[in-house]
Design a binder for these strands. Structure first.
Lengths: 121, 121
DNA sequence: CATATACTGAACCATTGAGTTCAGTATATA
DNA sequence: TATATACTGAACTCAATGGTTCAGTATATG
């Protein structure tokens, strides 16, 4: 289950780690679009766009539906909850860490000696 | 400047798109560690860990300092502000999108006819 | 029916990524 | 001084990415 979430975080962050794909998400945020629309917008071949869309689909960030010859892409069901959660958790660790460092610095300032080499936490 | 940020988002999201690297960040959130420490923790060669650390360093998420033979790794200066920001913006777009969809569904429910095929927004 | 449109799949290419091994260098320690 | 420790760099393997072209298939349109 943890590795399940890890796999998902891997997939999502890696889907987000590409300018074009983030662009597609933003675009779809303003309205659904066909593969051809996206190809025009991002000046890329249909095949190229298709690949990006597949990646986004597999990460659950986009859904598509084909009607006639046209495949329409829309935002998917996931709203990046886990990703936002992970980042938030990280930010809290980060704060805690640097608060601790601040305290340490204060403490060191108090003792002018600064004799021993502290194990850097 | 926009592409500057895009490059950074690329680098950071891609740094986060790996279970081991997220693990390292979490580990460092609880205290600094040497390359050897991390290698033990994640059962990987020194060289392997080193590469991950370099990636994290380049994304600004980790800083390192070598004293004697030991390179100590700590959390870096960046606290994922831009990434949190991007995700937040996306979530808002997402909400807006699905609110609009909800409205559309309501509207369709009101007209029992459901005659014409609406352009899916 | 003929033609144009929209997409799909296979194959290819160049680059990057994750990981290894192995041979070093530099620093501690006995 | 000899030896062990901690890291580093180069080189290699193997798989995945990002992108293309080209040859299809399926659907609209005149």
């Amino acid at each position: 289950m943890v590795q399940y979430m890890n796999a998902r975080l891997d997939a999502t962050f890696s889907a987000l780690a590409d300018t074009t794909r983030r662009g597609i998400l933003e675009q779809l945020g303003h309205g659904s679009a066909s593969v051809t629309d996206l190809a025009a917008k991002f000046r890329m071949t249909l095949t190229g766009i298709k690949k990006h869309v597949v990646v986004l689909e597999q990460a659950g960030l986009v859904t598509t539906e084909k009607v006639g010859r046209v495949r329409t892409c829309s935002l998917g069901l996931r709203r990046l909850e886990e990703e936002a959660g992970w980042i938030e958790r990280y930010r809290q660790l980060w704060e805690a860490r640097f608060d601790a460092l601040d305290k340490l610095v204060e403490e060191l300032k108090c003792r002018e000696k600064a004799d021993g080499r502290k194990k850097r936490t």
